[in-house]
């Protein structure tokens, strides 16, 4: 839609965004000072284990939070130059669906069980685009073709329980696409699906993203999934981005010990079967009272006392686009290892 050659601000700019929840034990910071940019037509993967703040991050970006959520004012979500928290009523009404749309994790629960597919698909089209019933149905059929649902006419009259999981997720994607959003957020879109269907859904998302040139945020806890479908990857741990790099750079030159541990825990086809998977020992940090230093330090294989002194800054390693929140990035470890014994670690580049 807008000129991509223009050196205008990125489609989405997130700055120092934090989200807390009131709990009986105190404020729980699920997202803690996250910043990133996302340009139109790019796909960003957000990876992390359960509870690392991935879903809360995107819900904060969409401004779709429960009433007990706390978002400090110094955090900013600028979408096409506007702070989403400052939208007025008219803008807000047409913000969800037409600007940003979301695909949820479980298509079993994210479709209303008592409404026909057709109505769920056309209601936002009618509401946002102001089309009449016939035109909206026309658009719905077009969308269902686009996401590869066979016999779309019949499906429109069916209820969610009459469709398979993969078909339902296609419907959810069709709903998300119905008003041509500029940014699609897919929150673990394949976690609840069969392995064979997972790939189809990811291929579908990738194809649609290329066809429509929208931006996409793909959340997953599976590094393998994001590798072939994203342009860049942000690894989250304890509510913070611990490593952020272009996809190829990340796999070639991973810098954060957590990313390494995450990769090591993926089953690999070239290892003998029944080989024990490497789990990450310990538990995710308690976000009401997080550790004082590096959040990952208690579970890190490379931990030193220095790690627990202060929260490390997000610093550039290797190249400017590759950032990492570690005082001893692995990129430099490897140099150290090659240099046999080095009393002083080289500083980060």
């Amino acid at each position: 839609m807008s000129e991509s050659t223009n050196p205008s601000p990125p489609l989405l700019r997130v700055r120092n965004l934090s989200t807390g929840f009131e709990t009986p034990r105190g404020l729980l910071w699920a997202v803690d000072g996250v910043s990133f940019d996302l340009d139109q037509g790019r796909t960003m993967g957000v990876v992390g284990e359960s509870g690392s703040g991935k879903s809360v991050l995107v819900r904060t970006v969409m401004n779709l939070l429960a009433a007990n959520a706390v978002v400090p004012d110094d955090g900013e979500v600028l979408f096409r130059g506007r702070n989403v928290r400052d939208l007025d009523a008219i803008e807000e009404r047409h913000f969800w669906g037409t600007e940003m749309a979301m695909v949820f994790q479980d298509p079993m629960t994210s479709l209303n069980p008592v409404k026909r597919i057709g109505r769920q698909l056309t209601e936002s089209i009618r509401f946002h685009l102001g089309l009449d019933d016939d035109a909206a149905t026309e658009r719905a059929l077009e969308l269902m073709n686009q996401v590869g649902i066979p016999e779309p006419k019949k499906r429109l009259r069916q209820y969610p329980h009459e469709l398979s999981g993969g078909m339902r997720q296609r419907v959810v994607i069709a709903i998300a696409l119905s008003c041509s959003p500029k940014l699609l957020i897919a929150d673990e879109p394949t976690t609840a699906l069969d392995v064979t269907v997972q790939r189809q859904i990811l291929d579908l998302l990738g194809r649609i993203q290329r066809e429509t040139d929208m931006a996409m945020i793909l959340i997953t806890h599976d590094l393998g999934v994001v590798a072939s479908y994203t342009d860049e990857i942000a690894v989250m741990y304890g509510g913070q981005i611990v490593e952020h790099a272009a996809t190829s750079d990340l796999f070639e030159d991973l810098a954060h010990p957590y990313t390494e541990a995450l990769l090591a825990s993926i089953p690999r086809i070239d290892l003998p079967s029944h080989a024990r998977l490497q789990a990450i020992g310990g538990r995710p940090p308690d976000m009401v009272a997080p550790p004082p230093g590096c959040r990952f330090a208690p579970r890190c294989a490379y931990r030193t006392d220095e790690c627990e002194a202060a929260i490390p800054e997000l610093i550039s390693v290797a190249d400017r686009m590759h950032t990492c929140r570690c005082i001893r990035p692995l990129v430099s470890h490897r140099d150290v290892a090659e240099a046999v014994v080095a009393p002083n670690r080289p500083g980060s580049s």
């Binding site: 969409m62 779709l64 009404r93 047409h94 913000f95 969800w96 669906g97 037409t98 749309a101 979301m102 949820f104 994790q105 479980d106 629960t109 994210s110 479709l111 209303n112 069980p113 409404k115 209601e123 936002s124 509401f127 946002h128 959810v172 709903i175 008003c179």
Partner: peptide, 20 residues
């Protein structure tokens, strides 16, 4: 989830309450 999904579609609050 389907209520959150309906809100994420941009449906107004009262409409979600009544129709979903």
């Amino acid at each position: 989830d389907f209520i959150l999904a309906a809100r994420a579609k941009g449906m107004p609050r009262w409409r979600v309450l009544l129709t979903d």
